[in-house]
Each structure stands twice: as C-alpha cells, then as structure tokens.
Design a protein around this nucleic acid. Sequence first.
DNA 1: AGTGTCTGCCCC
DNA 2: ATTCTGC
DNA 3: GCAGAATGGGCAGACACT
Length: 436
Amino acid sequence: MRLTRFAEFLEKLEKTSSRIEITKILTNLLNESDQSEIDKVVYLSLGMLAPNYQGTILNLAEKMMLRTLAYAYQKDLTEVTSLYKKEGDVGLVAQELGERLKVKDKNLTVTDVYEKLLAIAEDGGGGSQERKVGKMAKLIGEIDPLSARFITRIPVGKLRLGFSEKTVIAALAAQDPKLEKEIEAAYNIRPDIGYIAGLVKENKLDTVEPEIGVPVAPMLAQRLNSTSEMVKKMGEVSVEPKFDGLRIFIHYRRKDNLIKIFTRNMNSIDIDTFPELKEVGKFIHADEAILDSEAIGVDPKREMFLDFQKTIQRRRKHDIGKTASEIPLQFQIFDLIYINGKSLINEPYLKRREILEKTVQNGGLLRIDENVITDNPDVIKDLHQKYLKMGLEGVVVKRANGTYVSGRTGWNWVKMKEVEGTRGKLSDTIDCVVMG
DNA sequence: AGTGTCTGCCCC
DNA sequence: ATTCTGC
DNA sequence: GCAGAATGGGCAGACACT
C-alpha cells in the first residue's frame, strides 16, 4: 500500500469520533492491505513498530523530533520550537513546514516507511542520536506533508487517532461477533496485533497457543470497596493479600533452562535483573510453566516488606549485585497459566490453584499467596483489616470458579485498598495551604 | 569518571 | 496507577 | 460500562558533553 493512501485513511480516522464509524474505516483499510504488509499497516496505525515484549524502542521523542524537524526543513531550532509551542503537536508543525516547502512524496510504501523507522529504532551507541535525527529527517524529506503529519507523531507517541488494539480486533472481525471472540482469545495469548491480523487474513487463528517466552495478556482486577457487593457479584471467592510490588510473569522451560520474565505491560525483563530467578527451576516441579506473581522487596533479614519505591529500585541493569543484597526479592505466586504443554486459561481458578500448589515449592524464593475461600462479606472485611495492619495494600478477591480472563473484563478479580466505604485516595476534602 | 538532558507503549 | 470523556 | 486519552511522581537507562 502506498503511504499516501495510508495517510488518507489515517486522516479519515482522525476526523471520526464514533467508534462504530472508526471500525468501518479500519475494516476497509485492512481489506485493502495484503498479507505481506497487513502487520506493518496495523503497527503503524497504532503508532507502534512491534509488540511490547520484543523491546523495540525508538529512543527518539519530543526534543529529538524538534531537532529533526529543524534539520529536515532547514529552520532554526528556536523557530521550530516556538511553532511547536503554538500548535502543541509535532505532526501539525511538520505538515505546515512541509506544505510551505512543497515537499513531494517519493512513492514510498507503508512497508518502506516501516523499515526506515525500524532502522532508526535499531540504531544505538555513540553518535546514534545524531544518526537517528539524520535518518528521520531524510524520511520526512521523502514523504508528502499529510503523511509527515502522522509519521512524525509516531515516535513521540502522540498519534491519537481515537482507537487502539481492541478496535482493530473489532475491525478484523468485520461485524462477526463469533469471529471477534476468537480473535480476542488469540490476541490474549499472543498479544501481537500485527501477527494476529496476519493470521486472520490467512484464516489460521486456531494455531495460537500459549508459549514459553511469549507473554499472556495479564488479568487485571476491578476496584470495589464493598465486600457485600463482591459476594453479590462473584458468589464464592478466594480472598488473598495484595502486595505493593511489581507484577511479574515467570516463564520456565526445563529442557533448555529457558527463563523469561515479563511485566504487567508485557515488557521483557533481562534475567540478569533478577539473578535469583536463574535457579527458579529448582522450585518448580514441572518441565514448563508460566507463573503469575508479584515481586516484592524484603529487608535483608527478611523480616518486613519494603515499599514500592524501594522495590522498584531492583528494576535495573547496572549495580545489580549491590542492589540485590540490599533489596532481596521474593515472588508471591498467585496463578499458574500454563503447565507442561497445557493451557490452564479456561480452567476455574480453584483448579488452577490446586495445580499451582502441587507445582511450586512454597517458601524462600517463591511463595504461594495464602488464601481463604468464603462467601461471607464479614470474612473478607476482617482479612482486609488484617492485611492493612500488616502493612500490605489490601485484598484481592477472586471468583472461585473464574477462568483466566485477560484485561479488566467482567467480575472475576476485584481489589480493595482503602477502608471500606471510602472513595479512594482522593477524598472529598483536601487539606491545602495557599502559597505565595 | 562525573554531570546533564532526554527518554521510557517505564512502573505504580 | 487514577481520572475524565464520548459513545 | 467500555474504550481511549490525558495525567503524575519517581526511577534508571542511554547518550552527549566535559
């Protein structure tokens, strides 16, 4: 697909606010894209180059984009900066300067542009900022002003077309509710929207299975601060402590000792960041497993939990030895998504926990969250008080027979942090002091 | 080696 | 993470 | 109620400069 054609679609999408209408336009865009380029069309329309978990990062944002525009259009940085301050958007600045200079497009395709952006992302090391700016400026000089409007917004993360992955899935399904459910399920176990779009085109969705090394989209908790409402919505529940740490997924394969770690946002974390997990196989009684957990810092005597700001200091690549001894981590395991080639996503929670308790050696590095099964709101209330007194964040309450549903859909997991009945961190009144 | 600036679909 | 808005 | 966008505080990584 020609970039100019692609830009026409994006312009139409930008002008549209009704999601139904956006979805129709997207369906047309996807229909016009062929098998070899549909992934790139999808990535760029969402302002991305690759799924999160591949760690493809441009390291070129607002400030460098302004330098890029100054270089590309031969203007002073101060002039570009003041234009940017006025417009508040690099895309409008690029389009305007491009129109003034009558920049002509060189018949680039979406694939061409995608590859050039990828090359910018892959550049690094000494002098790379200058090279990135140079490559980006060259690209801008080869595309028409309307395309520049959108392409320049991609690195700064401000495409803002009013849709995201969910809407792309709806567009891929093209009004077929059954197909939409299938695409959604496939996307949740392989959260690579470009890849999924390709599979839909080929009619090969049924090949998707969880895999060691590919993150599953995390299940998230809704917020509720009434225990009786929890029981009303979920019936029998499992009540567990909520730790204030980092959501961590641990993937393990014994055969080649493959250990992969992902965050809640499905970003990959280098194993050297958490060296204690290099031995995780000793504590897992399975050949393959995907564990859902919260990593939490403890004081070196292992007598108390550390707060989030301390725990997050462990998310680093340098000075690991020193930090690791100051901030030992333990992993509170609370779910098992996959074991020995079998997905547990559609198993009820208590069944998954039963297998989890047999699979993970509880104590030391890995600790299985304690839990109480109940349908009594007062029991939840008491546990909530108990965990708050222990310095924890509160409780997570899980529907006993709920499957592992990615995202915040439905009432399967609920969290309660503050005292029951309050409105959350910001209360109705705020203490303030007038300054100056 | 130390400091400053920018960046991060950062983490919460 | 929270909060707000359009649908 | 959902999807998307906008917002914040704090921290470490990457690179440029001296």
